Computed example of a mutant assay.
Amino acid sequence: MKQFLILAIIVLSIAQIVARPVEYSDGNDDVLAPEPEPTEIPIGKYLLFTTKANWIEATKQCRSKNMKLISILSEEDNDNVVKVIKAAGEGRIGFWTSGNRRKTNGVYFWGNEKKITYTNWEAGKPDNVRSNNGEEEQCIEIMGLNILKWNYRFCSNELYFICEEPHESIDETQPISLLFAQQILTVQMFGYYENNENEEVLTPEPEPEPLYDLVKKYHIFTTRVSWADAMRHCQSEGLQLVNILSKEDNDNVIQAIKDANQGEIGFWTSGSRTNNNGTYVWGNGQPLTFTDWENGVPDNLHAHTGYGQEECIELKGYHILKWNDHLCSYRLYYICEENTKQNLFSK
Rank of each mutant, 00 (worst) to 15 (best):
L5S: 11
I184E: 07
M1T: 08
N243Y: 03
V297W: 06
Y108C: 01
I257C: 03
W268K: 03
T39A: 07
I93Q: 02
V107I: 14
I43A: 01
H233K: 12
S13L: 13
N105I: 05
E199N: 13
K316S: 05
T186I: 12
D77Q: 02
E248Q: 14
H304Q: 14
I14E: 05
R102P: 00
V281A: 02
I313T: 05
E310G: 04
Y212E: 15
N28C: 11
A33S: 06
A58D: 06
K60I: 13
H302N: 14
S246T: 14
V18R: 14
L145N: 11
E337K: 06
L327N: 10
N339C: 00
H304F: 11
S272C: 04
E76Y: 03
L245M: 10
I335T: 05
N277S: 15
Q240E: 12
V281E: 09
I244Y: 10
W227I: 01
P210S: 00
A123D: 09
N80T: 06
P34M: 00
P175W: 00
I320V: 15
D127M: 11
I265S: 07
L211G: 08
I176P: 00
L48C: 06
T279S: 11
N146W: 12
N28S: 14
L327S: 11
I140K: 02
V31H: 07
L12K: 10
E200A: 04
N120P: 01
A53W: 07
S131E: 13
K68Q: 04
T97I: 13
G144N: 09
T340C: 03
L32N: 04
S272P: 07
H319G: 07
P21A: 13
R101V: 15
L7S: 13
T305Y: 15
D30W: 09
I70F: 01
K149I: 09
K217D: 11
E35G: 03
S226I: 03
N105F: 12
W110Y: 11
C139A: 15
K316G: 06
